[in-house]
Computed example of a mutant assay.
Amino acid sequence: MAPTPEQTFGFDPTHGYDLDSLLAVPAPAAPADFDGFWRGRYEQARAVRVAPATGARTVTAGAGAAEVYEVAYTSVGGLRVGGWLTLPADGEVRQGCVVTHGYGGRQAPDPALLPPGTAAVWPCLRGLGARSLHPGLPSDAAAHVLHGIGSRASYVHGGCTADVWCAATALLELVPAAARRLTYAGTSFGGGIGALALPWDDRFAAAALTVPSFGNHPLRLTLPCTGSGESVRRYHAAHPEVASVLAYFDAATAATRITVPTHVAPALLDPAVPPPGQFAVHNALRGPKELRVLTAGHVEPSDPEEEAALRDAQRDFLVTACPREPG
């Protein structure tokens, strides 16, 4: 007999929530200076001379055929962030995308995830992945998620969010046609960081967030998990004052400021990112949104049919979702 999820993970990875209760999870109230803090961080990032540079080129074949270049650019703090630039093989750019990754980092881009005609930058956010390892920044998720957490000014998630804004600047400098419709796609860690980045940057027209992390920190701190949140939960148990820092990096709180069309794919069961936090991001959105509920997240083997359906839905959304109305 196969073990139950509780036996496998040592806890219930649904945390006792069904779909109705998940759709009722709220976002925490924002600190009084939440908007000012993030607008200041955004202005700082936009002032950076990103100086993007491309390197080795390869060409992929088949679905999503693309030219692939190594790319690097400068982000806040003078860090060079590495990743990849992908361009449609036929040279016709109809839109752009910044694509981020989970806490496992990224080893290579996957252009087939995006709509045809997309020029994309695939950054490895600071300290992570194959191309953004830096001395002084841990690459292990359990340590990375705690780096600088003692202060809102030093917490690494602020730098990672700046890496997204600077990635957008780099993409638009390298491929001006991407400005026709700039989109965002992020999974897990990247979904949460995207929620933090999107409210302040009006260059983005639409977004897709899959099993987004960092939603409703006060609730997350009470829920065991197998992901980076467990490090934060344990740290908070010894340092409860960190809750005041986390309040500035809550993806659900930030989502209350997102007005661009956003596709969210949260999971009903997820041992790594507690589902209530994922749904809190979706529930908080104030603009047009589309929900695609997944059976499970961060569980292997995944359902290939569900993955394919999600990929198709997100590609369609990133093309057809209406851009934000002026004003």
Results as ranks from 00 to 15, higher is better:
residue 95 Q to P: 01
residue 126 R to H: 12
residue 318 L to K: 01
residue 228 S to F: 09
residue 197 A to H: 08
residue 268 L to K: 04
residue 65 A to H: 08
residue 305 E to N: 12
residue 228 S to Y: 06
residue 67 E to S: 04
residue 10 G to R: 11
residue 318 L to R: 00
residue 2 A to G: 05
residue 83 G to W: 05
residue 225 C to M: 07
residue 54 T to D: 05
residue 316 D to P: 00
residue 172 L to Q: 03
residue 264 V to H: 02
residue 44 Q to K: 15
residue 233 R to D: 05
residue 293 V to K: 04
residue 187 T to I: 15
residue 100 T to S: 11
residue 27 A to G: 08
residue 30 A to L: 14
residue 216 N to L: 04
residue 215 G to V: 04
residue 188 S to N: 10
residue 154 S to Q: 14
residue 96 G to E: 04
residue 114 L to W: 07
residue 236 H to E: 04
residue 127 G to A: 09
residue 61 A to N: 12
residue 258 I to D: 06
residue 36 G to W: 07
residue 202 D to V: 05
residue 226 T to A: 08
residue 171 L to V: 02
residue 83 G to T: 10
residue 121 V to K: 00
residue 68 V to H: 03
residue 11 F to L: 03
residue 83 G to D: 08
residue 69 Y to V: 10
residue 52 P to W: 02
residue 205 A to P: 05
residue 142 A to G: 12
residue 9 F to P: 06
residue 68 V to D: 00
residue 179 A to R: 00
residue 160 C to F: 06
residue 250 D to W: 06
residue 79 L to H: 13
residue 218 P to H: 11
residue 42 Y to D: 08
residue 94 R to K: 14
residue 254 A to F: 06
residue 247 A to V: 05
residue 155 Y to S: 08
residue 211 V to A: 11
residue 79 L to M: 10
residue 79 L to E: 09
residue 135 P to N: 13
residue 7 Q to G: 06
residue 154 S to M: 10
residue 57 R to H: 14
residue 116 P to Y: 08
residue 189 F to D: 01
residue 268 L to T: 07
residue 271 P to S: 12
residue 61 A to V: 13
residue 179 A to I: 02
residue 41 R to E: 13
